[in-house]
Design a protein around this nucleic acid. Structure first.
Lengths: 190, 190, 190, 190
DNA sequence: AATGAATGAGCGTTCATTCAT
DNA sequence: GATGAATGAACGCTCATTCAT
């Protein structure tokens, strides 16, 4: 928690914002420098390359999401049904206002980086895996899926959500997310 | 169909490939020039800006998709049920091999360009709208949806598909697409 | 001999001067740009990299030297003795005034680049080889060496000359060159 | 011989290696830091500038060479003839294996630094002077030169050696050195 | 004394675009 | 119309050095 660490964290935090909005490749190092009033030397003192920063940003996205969505919702001690409902509501919450336009940090980077950069791709892949794992366990506990089909059901739910966030970004309204959550709920709890 | 037009089409065709794989922003004008052995003067003779080319590429994606998916599948004279099945099968077909990694040209550009570029966004939005319209009519015809909920159901199906293509890109396997088609079919035709 | 070629030649010519004086690595692209009032775009239009320019500069040194020293002196139709004397006098001539400080373009690059850059090294090596070849033939013709030892004698003469130019650079006077030429002549013609 | 001095010597020693191989200008402070696992603060604590370090490195080269070549060979109590022979043999010894490619530390810096940096130049100049002085005395003692021409003869021998090391670097073989030593011996002792 | 953090000018190169013919 | 040449701002990154403790 010394000064150095703080400074580094600060850069990651600023970069996380800029990158979520502009994408990784379209964000220049200078964009981040300007956004945070940081000198070039400082930046490259903490990060060997722009790529290193990019990875730090994804890791930060993942940490945040794990805390909020997985530990904070799917692995609490509410009833399994409630936890799923909570996850779905929370998704709608998260993509209101300017966040609709920005889209999902993971979905954005997934599409931008997966084909040509393994280090981004693998991190995002394992994040989606962890989410699917936590969700599949909750689905089983709620008796909405059997052990046999729980993981794939979870994956389908997650990919539907991602698709709806993509759609919301294009339409610049959260309706597609609400629509998808509505259909998912119908199928889950009808 | 004179030489000028041919040359222009050729550039769009080459650019469409490169952009699908690298994204619009990460693709430099030079990438396209090299890929097609085209001179700089030639390129900017046909396209005022890189942005102009980008738009031409999206329009080309849309034309192709309309011909193949909307006119070629959803608006043929097979039975409505079969048309929907055909659409779903065709989706799986389209994302085999190297196409899994490349992802959906529309989804890719949707995420990359929607927030900051209205001319890309609107084209992609209206494309998804046309697809949803054609699908909702087929859903009604197949009595899988009422006029009231058909359009939103169609949108949900499409966004699920887009989400699964995104997921497939991250995992570098077409499994997520097959999984989603499986779940969509179950809900549609159970 | 069109304009494009001229422009390229002009850059090589300016760069040849700068590099001879500062060395290849210590010469920045910007140094050349400033020296010739050239725009950055122009420079990189003609040369893919700084390295490419460096190679063009060496090739230019070699062409000049071949014309002047080999064709212009060693392979004329004077008597063999006179040609050797001419070569030695010309060496002294070439390293008067500011050229003493600049040193030999080949010797400079030989030392700077040989260890870590094969494309420079090979060019310089083959240049010294051609010089030694032309000199050894003249030595034989002048009956100053037998076919058996002519090439190695030639190499020794050339390396002595290079050493004396190095020494002259350090002492900032052409004396070491004159001294070495004196000793070479004594041994050759005593 | 306290800790501070040790650390300083250690840096000079590491830098001497790196600079001999890469040259002074092409060696970045960071290259040295990495080679010796030294922190930036430490480096600039001991040396005000990179230039200061460079000078320390030359001084170290000179000390070593004085001990080995001048005191260790030319000023021993063997016969003058033997001392000269020893010097010539030692030169061949010194530039075997990887040292052929690295070249002579003095010759390298002479060419790289003489024109634009007086503090390097003067050190190297006076080093060559001391060498020539010691050699000329030995030449006189061996009756291979008169007081009148001894110094210039010594200079010629040294510059021939330097030239042959340069040549060896270009050809990546020690042959040119052996060739030059052979010719020098022939002229000296025929 | 000793050192990691911070600095900003400069590096070689690429960028989308305009010029000149 | 058609094109290679030219442009200079911006790119990610390294540089030798100074700061703060």
């Amino acid at each position: 928690m010394n000064k150095g660490t703080l400074a580094k964290e600060e850069i990651v935090s600023i970069a996380a914002d800029v990158i979520r909005s502009k994408g990784y490749q379209a964000t220049s190092v200078n964009d981040i420098l300007v956004a945070g009033d940081i000198g070039k030397g400082k930046f490259f003192h903490y990060f060997k390359t722009k790529h290193d920063l990019g990875i730090a940003v994804v890791d930060r996205y993942i940490d945040t999401w794990k805390t909020n969505m997985i530990e904070g919702i799917l692995q609490t001690d509410s009833s399994a049904d409630l936890r799923i409902q909570h996850m779905l509501e929370e998704t709608i919450e998260s993509f209101q206002d300017s966040n609709v336009r920005k889209g999902c940090p993971f979905g954005n980077l997934a599409i931008e980086m997966s084909e040509h950069d393994a280090s981004f791709r693998k991190r995002i892949e394992s994040f989606f895996h962890e989410w699917a794992l936590a969700l599949s366990e909750t689905l089983m506990e709620a008796e909405l899926a059997t052990p046999k089909d729980a993981y794939e059901y979870a994956e389908h739910i997650i990919s539907s959500i991602e698709g709806s966030i993509l759609m919301a970004k294009v339409k610049q309204t959260s309706k597609p997310i609400e629509n998808t959550i509505f259909h998912l709920k119908k199928t889950l709890f009808h």
